[in-house]
Amino acid sequence: METYLGIDVGSVTTKLAVLDGNDELVTYIYLPTQGKPIEMVQQCLKQIKPQLPEDVNIRGVATTGSARYLAGVIVGADLVKNEITSHAVATLQYVPQVQTIIEIGGQDSKIIIVRDGVVTDFGMNTVCAAGTGSFLDHQALRLNMSIEEFARRALDSNTPVRIAGRCTVFAESDMVHKQQMGHRIEDIIYGLCQALVRNYLNNVGLGKEIKPPIVFQGGVAFNQGIVKALQEELGTEVIVLPHHEVMGAIGAALLVHEGMAGSNNGSQFKGFGVSEVKYHTSSFECKACPNHCEIAQLSVGGQALARWGGRCDLWEGSPTS
């Protein structure tokens, strides 16, 4: 079977999606990155292999997400694509008439404005991660409940309390303050959801023309409290697709299918065997100029595969020898 593999290595979760020749989703996997992108890519490959048919033929591999270059070297990617393009392409595949894509992930959040099937504008959170998945996780942990329970209880709120969402530090102190005054935990949680949605729309969505159909995706779209708050704030329905958490990986797979269609070259995919390879990462300080850039190095058996992190081209890319 002809298939295309998309790998999305985000800061918090790692996603793999396999599409067939007709761009139908064959299978996917979604695991926490746990700060170990290399191990998680290997883990995901290992776990997805048994879910694929015997005669699987990977015709193209693409990586996306913040660790896309690292993952690309490990698996032998045919395409390394930024997550904004990947998300837009995937959403357009399922909802061709989409005009606004809201994506909130573990560490960053984006908005993508689409008109007539092409991206016309996009935005990403700037210097602050307020209102992303990590913060919600942290709050659930502080309240000693799972993130699923956290989301469920938000829906039981009758009179949500007002929480300052401008900054997570303020939000947290507000939450503690309200909790110590005796407000119901459900009302505090939903109040937080509303605050995060407001913060998202005021920051990332600033100056963007948000028109329906609106598609909401990324890990945070699992959170029904956020979905409800988003619909209330926007005053319109928000679509959450069935595989919203792996849209980046699906988009990468779609893009590599599109890219490979025009070329006669075979895939550079190194095979599922890479999950057994022992990769070694290290870093050193380049002393070539006063910048002293931190160069990260990926190697196998003492042989350097790739280096990056410099401000100039001295160490960038794969070493030729």
């Binding site: 393009t85 991206v119 401000r311």
Partner: peptide
């Protein structure tokens, strides 16, 4: 920021947006 990832991601997406728009 000492890492350039954030800037590169935005630039890549911006150039993609332009080239896909042109193609359309």
């Amino acid at each position: 920021h000492t890492a350039k990832t954030g800037v590169v991601t935005r630039l890549e997406a911006f150039l993609d947006m332009i080239s896909r728009r042109k193609r359309r």
